[in-house]
Simulated scan of single mutants.
Amino acid sequence: MTRSFHRIACEGETLAASLDSGTEATGLLIVSGGNEIRAGAHGGMAQLAGRVSEQGFPVLRYDRRGIGESSGENREFLGSADEIAAATQFLRQKQPRVNKIIGFGNCDAATALAFFGPAAGIDGYLLANPWVIEASGEPDSEKPLPSSAAIRSRYWDRIKNPRTIFDLLSGKIDFRKLLKGLKQASRVEENSAISIQLRDALPRLDGNSQILLAKRDTTARAFLAAWNSPDFATLRASTSITLETLDSASHSFADEPARDWLTDKLMEALRQA
């Protein structure tokens, strides 16, 4: 299989893209999360594309507008509908054998795929650690504020660890910070607006869809808290959405066990499409 570089037209701008060719009739579209370039995180997406392509499945990755080698203004993940549509169309054009496309994204890319994938004509989805965390709401602040449920989950893990008591007594854990964290965890709150948007978007996805969670990751904890809430009860009962968890804190599935688990899930979805 070969890897080639391309420029994809997108609303007067160009997206820098890498295509790993393949002979199979199902292709994989990788959408980068955050402001990562198509090789991120730390080259993991490029390596993932290579592993999938070695099995015969073509893979397209691209930089969103205003990111990496792509031109234009960075409109963040909520403004990425045009990029997803342009990349999907390009993959079909360059690999005419392809009749189905599976979309994969991590973090806010997963949420973007859920929002914009159906209009782009994507046929199946693997959404890893979907982003549902709102901004803190403080003036001039873009720092995300984890949900109370996510904080509770993290602190419960720490409390269960016997070493926590030793670290408290030895001063390695700041007792005042611990109390502050527990106070945050005690808040009772509603699901974020973006989590409700995601809940409403997920049933509209074509084909079978999987949500993949590294369950000790903060972003995954926030999504899981929303998923387990009453707001998501109907969605949980749906047969078209499945949720798979991995006991890992690796947000980008960077360590070897997480990387292998993610690759296996992608290959399974591609072969069954």
Rank of each mutant, 00 (worst) to 15 (best):
Y125M: 09
E76I: 04
H42P: 02
P96K: 06
L126V: 03
G66E: 08
I122Q: 04
G27Q: 05
K94A: 11
D123L: 09
G44W: 07
S136Y: 05
N106E: 03
T88F: 01
S136L: 08
R75Q: 12
I101C: 01
A135K: 15
E76H: 14
F116T: 08
Y62S: 08
A87Y: 00
T26Y: 07
A81P: 03
A112Y: 10
E138D: 13
A81L: 02
R38L: 15
F116M: 02
Q93R: 10
E83L: 06
R38S: 07
S136G: 13
G56H: 05
A128D: 08
I37R: 15
L127E: 05
E36Y: 13
P130Q: 04
R51D: 14
A119C: 05
T111K: 02
A85F: 06
E138L: 15
E69Y: 09
A85G: 04
A46R: 14
A87P: 01
N35A: 12
G117I: 09
A39Q: 13
N74E: 04
E134T: 15
N129G: 12
E73F: 09
G56D: 05
N99D: 11
A85I: 07
P139H: 12
R75D: 04
A114L: 10
A39P: 00
V132R: 10
E36H: 13
V132P: 10
L113G: 03
A39F: 11
A81R: 12
L29F: 03
F77D: 00
I84Y: 00
R51L: 12
A135D: 15
I84P: 05
E69V: 08
G34T: 01
K94P: 04
E54C: 10
E142I: 09
G79C: 01
Y125D: 02
I122C: 02
A49P: 05
R64N: 12
P118E: 09
M45Q: 13
G56S: 02
A135R: 15
A41I: 02
Q89F: 06
E54T: 13
S53D: 07
A49E: 06
E54F: 10
E69T: 03
G137Q: 12
D82Q: 11
A86I: 02
I133K: 08
H42N: 14
T88Y: 00
I133E: 13
P96L: 05
G56K: 01
E73W: 02
G121I: 04
K100I: 04
A112C: 08
A85L: 06
G117M: 05
P130V: 10
V52W: 03
Q55H: 12
E134V: 14
R92D: 05
G79A: 02
N35H: 08
Q55M: 11
P130D: 05
R51Y: 12
G117S: 10
V132H: 09
G105H: 07
A81V: 00
I67K: 05
N74Q: 06
A119M: 09
F116R: 03
A110M: 08
G105P: 05
W131L: 10
K100W: 07
R75T: 03
P139K: 09
R97M: 08
G27L: 10
K94R: 13
P58D: 00
A39V: 03
G124E: 00
R65H: 01
L126Q: 11
G79M: 03
G105M: 03
E36R: 15
G50R: 09
R75S: 07
E73Q: 10
T111F: 11
